[in-house]
Amino acid sequence: MHHGTVDGFGYGLVTPLAAYVMACLGGALGLRCTSRALLAAHSWRPGWLALGSAAIGSGIWTTHFVAMIGFTVHGAPIHYDARTTFASLALAIVMVGVGVFIVGYQGATGSALFTGGTVTGLGVASMHYLGMAGMQLDGTFQYDTLTVAASVVIAVAAATAALWAAGQVRGFLWSVGASLVMGLAVSGMHYTGMAALTVHLHGTPSASAPGQSPASLLVPLLIGPLVFLVLAGAVILLDPLMVAGRRHWTPVEHKPGVPAPEPATASVSRPLAAARPSPARPAVRSR
């Protein structure tokens, strides 16, 4: 058994930068959906939270495999098991969804953020290592325990911070800033996890070993999630309340007895109009 020569930057800075952009895109879409859900009617809230969960999960998954395009092991062709690869996508969406729904229905309270951030962060880390388990080559992987633990801590801290930012329900620029931080943390988690990796090859490395390039293997797998992110972005941009901040719209759950200002769109005005009591008529004194 021999140590494999691992190269995580086969295309230089191209793949890390592209992976960071995908993490930011998925984070921006997902966090904005989560913020929007906190101000939506209860009938619309599950839809916004589900869209946000899918956007964040797809962004994280795409980040991982865009970064893996630049990953090579000298003399050992790499293949990917399709079932395990897509199972990691489903796992990311489901676990992120659990965390997002917790914050979406309980608000950005301390207990909700702790629980939701922990579940979401564990989902990010689980997606990474399950995706790595889907790699097939003539060798075995070994991980350094402390470095793996550090990558999980980074994922949990990043997820908690991102959900806290989403729960503040502020303007679009606030979500953009939060997504930039989340993208940095997700990318940092990925490369921290990769730093924990050691590859042991079963045979002698061969420079002439046949095999497809990582790009030709992974690009077809990435088409679906990329198309979904584009469609999710279109849905968000078409919603007239997504770019506005808190001062431009009114939450559905306003304080009783305080008249709510007229909202900007019919989608929010309907539940508000239904909940708003009709003005009391002055009593007419009979003679």
Rank of each mutant, 00 (worst) to 15 (best):
M1T: 04
H2R: 09
H2G: 08
F9Q: 10
G12W: 03
G12P: 08
L17T: 07
V21C: 10
A23Y: 09
R32G: 05
C33K: 08
R36I: 05
L39E: 12
A54F: 12
W61G: 05
V73D: 01
V73E: 09
H74D: 08
H74C: 09
A76E: 02
P77I: 14
P77Y: 03
P77N: 06
Y80P: 11
Y80F: 06
R83L: 15
F86S: 09
I93D: 00
V94C: 09
M95K: 08
V100K: 11
Y105C: 02
G110H: 11
G110A: 11
G117W: 09
V119R: 01
V124R: 00
V124N: 07
M127W: 02
M127L: 13
H128Q: 13
M132D: 07
M135T: 12
M135F: 03
D138V: 04
G139S: 07
Q142C: 08
Y143P: 03
A149L: 08
A155E: 01
A158P: 05
A161G: 07
A162S: 10
L163R: 06
L163S: 11
A165N: 03
V169N: 08
R170C: 01
L173G: 02
A178H: 08
S179N: 00
G183D: 03
G188K: 00
M194K: 05
L197S: 00
H200L: 07
L201D: 06
S206N: 12
A207G: 07
S213L: 09
L221R: 15
L221Q: 13
L229M: 13
A232K: 01
A232G: 00
D239I: 04
D239M: 07
P240R: 04
V243W: 10
R247Q: 04
V252H: 08
E253W: 05
E253D: 11
K255E: 10
P259F: 06
P261L: 09
A264S: 05
S269E: 04
A275R: 14
V284F: 07
V284W: 02
S286C: 05
